[in-house]
């Protein structure tokens, strides 16, 4: 699938924060190649305003990319009461790690919880499979 076909959809810049989730973690214990793990990991949680800006519906797939990598994941509302436009959340896992920059300033610690990325509708594109992240 070429990248050009996504150009028309609105694109927004976001700050990504990663977090842990017990359901996703349990799914990993059972099988990290399983459907459940993908379903719970390949998700970006957005503010409803950002969902409108992207001209998508909850549950649609989006392209998340930056200089380090790109993945297609499902867009969901975060469900937080407090609005957080411009900030999105992804559970810690191979999909979020595809976007963590290698720039550490020599400290040995990547910025797992402070990632800049752009998000855009994937127009029905399929979620990136775990073995296709490479």
């Amino acid at each position: 699938m070429g990248f050009g076909q996504f150009l028309a959809a609105p694109e927004i810049k976001l700050k990504l924060i990663t977090y842990r989730d017990v359901f996703q973690d349990s799914a990993k214990e059972s099988s990290r190649f399983g459907e459940e793990y993908e379903k719970l990991s390949a998700v970006i949680r957005l503010d409803p305003k950002d969902i409108s800006k992207l001209a998508i519906k909850e549950g649609d797939t989006v392209f998340v990319k930056n200089g380090s990598g790109k993945v297609i994941v499902k867009a969901m509302k975060s469900g937080y009461e407090e609005p957080h436009p411009g900030i999105a959340y992804m559970v810690n896992g191979p999909w979020s790690n595809a976007l963590v920059p290698d720039d550490t300033g020599g400290t040995g610690v990547p910025k797992f919880k402070d990632i800049e990325a752009t998000v855009q509708s994937a127009k029905g594109g399929k979620v990136t499979g775990i073995l296709d992240i490479f």
Binding site: R32, S68, N97, A98, V100, D102
Partner: peptide, 16 residues
């Protein structure tokens, strides 16, 4: 451990 899952891919890719 699974560094290809838990490290930034940009870093871990070299392992391959």
């Amino acid at each position: 451990s699974d560094p290809l899952s838990s490290l930034p891919l940009s870093v871990a890719r070299y392992l391959t």
